[in-house]
Design a protein around this nucleic acid. Structure first.
Lengths: 193, 193
DNA sequence: GTCCGATGTTAATCAACGTTAACAGCACCG
DNA sequence: CGGTGCTGTTAACGTTGATTAACATCGGAC
């Protein structure tokens, strides 16, 4: 009873459905059976594609962290000034959050459920991504401190990542503009002594 | 083997420990046994104080929502101008978040695990609290829209509630000041057309 | 045409969990 | 004193869940 189409799309299809379910009900609130059903399979079928539930989550978070860091770093390097770099980071993060609300939610909430070997690596990537922001902020505000820049960065992440909880009152473009304006101003406010 | 002290403190003690555990590992990641152990009891002992695990969570979220709304409303009424009201809301929310990081985390993440009769009530309270912010923002920016004010409010909640994820680089006072500055500026940025 | 690897399925296993039952000590009231 | 709640405990129950085993199908390589 295999589907006519059995491409390597399956893994991605499962990851995508899992992101949605994990975001809505939490990692422990979703069973392997739920996951399978979401893509038209039975639970055990997932073991043909992933080592287990934890491995699935780990791969999901690893992928998100890598994408955030890679593209973030790319845009910073391409920028011609610290201010432009910050703007590029802002736009990248906003686009990612608006395009992948479920991924952002899981990324923020479920790290604690990833087993240790991979948990470390994900944390490393998350930290490296945050440090991109810190680095740029320190170039713009050399008179401040790393600690302040780090706290401001996390606060802005909180602001931008809150998107998934917004019930979509605004259009995507309006929301992107709003978040950009708010985050920009928050970041200048963070360094006004 | 009852403790010498068996005051009604027990309920609060359990709720407090539960908040900490739920915040760290998520509702489904904490067992009744874990909960009991955290206060020096066995799992089944909890049923002397709560109807069940869901009821415990419900009571916790209900209490948080009520406190946020009650004190928020009080401060708004006591304020002499919309600007002062906004400032009061800001300070109240920041104080609450910094003093109760675990509660804030659970409040944001675990609504979905509350069973239906009480879920509705909690949502109602959360909405009412957010509408306090919206109301004040609309007084300050009558030319804007409710939708915009609502989205801005949720974004600011995200910013302020991100505190628990900050690894405490700054002192409490420094953090409070930083959050206040960032949120204030974010909210003016939200309405600059 | 046959064989094989990839991809499914159903049935079985084993642990964990929420909850309830049965029982015990303690404080306090008469 | 004797009883009666209140608050614990341990043992037992039933369910659910992750994982594995055993078995089926299909498409393509030879």
């Amino acid at each position: 009873m295999a589907e006519a189409t059995a491409p390597p799309t399956r893994r991605l299809e499962i990851l995508s459905a899992a992101a949605e379910l994990f975001a809505r009900r939490g990692y422990h609130g979703v069973s392997i059976g739920d996951l399978g059903r979401a893509v038209g399979l039975t639970g055990p079928a997932l073991y043909r594609h992933f080592r287990g539930k934890e491995a699935l989550l780990a791969e999901m978070l690893l992928d998100i962290s890598e994408r955030l860091l890679a593209e973030g770093g790319r845009r910073v390097e391409a920028a011609e000034s610290p201010a432009a770099a910050l703007d590029a980071l802002l736009r990248w993060h906003i686009d990612f959050a608006l395009d992948n609300p479920a991924l952002i939610t899981v990324h923020v909430r479920e790290l604690g459920n990833v087993p240790q070997p991979q948990r470390r690596e994900i944390r490393r990537l998350q930290r490296a991504y945050a440090e991109e922001w810190v680095k740029v902020l320190r170039l713009i505000h050399p008179e401040s401190t790393d600690d302040r820049a780090r706290s401001a960065t996390h606060a802005v992440f909180g602001l931008l990542n809150s998107t998934p909880h917004s019930t979509g009152d605004l259009s995507r473009d309006a929301m992107a503009g709003l978040l950009h304006a708010m985050a920009s101003d928050a970041l200048t406010g963070a360094f006004r002594s």
